[in-house]
């Protein structure tokens, strides 16, 4: 940590960022707030309805279900992706050609457009033309992600694990590489077991990146839209309809602007709360160091 100089002129350096983000963030946010208290038919026919939409949204069972589903989904993928990511990071070579190659290969899923990720799994999971679907059918499981909710969940979770474990893996890998060689030498002299090395040398060093990795994964999975939309369309029924998707359905599909706006705000507040809790944790962790 370097000592920073107090200088309010620094605001001028931040100003461009502020303007460009404010344009795309504050104006839309204000508009959403405006929408959320009105019944809008067109820009000239609108009525002030107060908190009616909020009442409707807060008591809407579809949204409660989507929210519960969302939490289950986010926690499931965190439980799978974090340990798996750590394992992959531990196995990655640290030097030479192999290291670069492994790095590039592991990073590939992160660079695929999200709808293509959906498409890949849509194809891969089909029993007639996809390897995974055919494999499941051949080992005697009646697998069909478009009609069976459990299969749909399995596929969506699998897709997310496939898609995002690399992020955790790369974060941990970089964290591991920042551990000085001396630590390992000391451990070898002490004849420390593999587990002890992991528990007392590697894990503490990983704590920082892991918290950030979990924050990112939680947030990104909390706003997941494109991949399940392409893969299952939220179905069968509403089995894989998560928050973003029910929001888009309401806003674009049914054009219920008012309720959709109220929903957006509730959604945004939840995000803001979780984000703040994580951010405060991370900042306090760095302060303690």
């Amino acid at each position: 940590m370097q000592i920073k100089v107090e200088n309010n002129k620094a605001w001028f350096l931040v100003l461009p960022v502020f303007i460009i983000v404010a344009f795309s963030a504050i104006i839309p946010l204000m508009t959403v707030v405006n929408y959320s208290v009105q019944d809008i038919f067109d820009p000239y026919t609108r009525y002030f309805v107060g908190t009616e939409w909020f009442e409707q949204v807060m008591q809407d069972s579809r949204l409660h279900e989507a929210l519960i589903r969302q939490f289950i989904f986010s926690f499931t993928i965190l439980i799978i992706e974090v340990p798996l990511g750590i394992c992959v990071a531990l196995m990655m070579p640290t030097k030479g050609r192999g290291a670069s190659l492994a790095l590039i290969l592991v990073a590939i899923p992160l660079l695929i457009p999200w709808n293509v990720v959906g498409t890949i799994w849509q194809i891969f999971g089909r029993a007639d033309i996809g390897l995974f679907g055919a494999f499941m059918t051949n080992i005697g499981i009646d697998y069909n992600y478009s009609s069976n909710p459990i299969d749909a969940w399995l596929t969506v979770v699998l897709m997310d694990v496939w898609h995002w474990t690399p992020l955790i893996a790369l974060l941990c890998y970089s964290g591991l590489r920042s551990i000085p060689e001396v630590y390992y030498q000391a451990a070898r002299i002490d004849q420390a077991s593999r587990w002890a090395v992991f528990r007392y040398i590697q894990l503490p060093k990983l704590a920082n990146v892991l918290v950030i990795g979990m924050l990112l994964r939680f947030m990104d999975s909390f706003m997941i839209y494109t991949e399940p939309f392409v893969l299952t369309g939220g179905g069968p029924g509403t089995a894989t309809t998560f928050l973003s998707q029910s929001l888009v359905q309401q806003a674009i599909g049914q054009f219920d602007i008012g309720p959709a706006a109220a929903f957006s705000l509730v959604y945004f507040l939840i995000i803001l709360l979780v984000c703040w809790v994580f951010y405060t944790t991370i900042m306090n962790m760095q302060k303690d160091k």
């Binding site: 204000m30 508009t31 707030v33 405006n34 208290v37 009105q38 820009p43 609108r46 002030f48």
Partner: peptide, 15 residues
């Protein structure tokens, strides 16, 4: 600004 659909209460809130 018409598309932003301002109302008095929200305008007061943001002010």
């Amino acid at each position: 600004m018409a598309w932003m659909s301002w109302t008095l209460p929200t305008a007061l809130f943001f002010t």
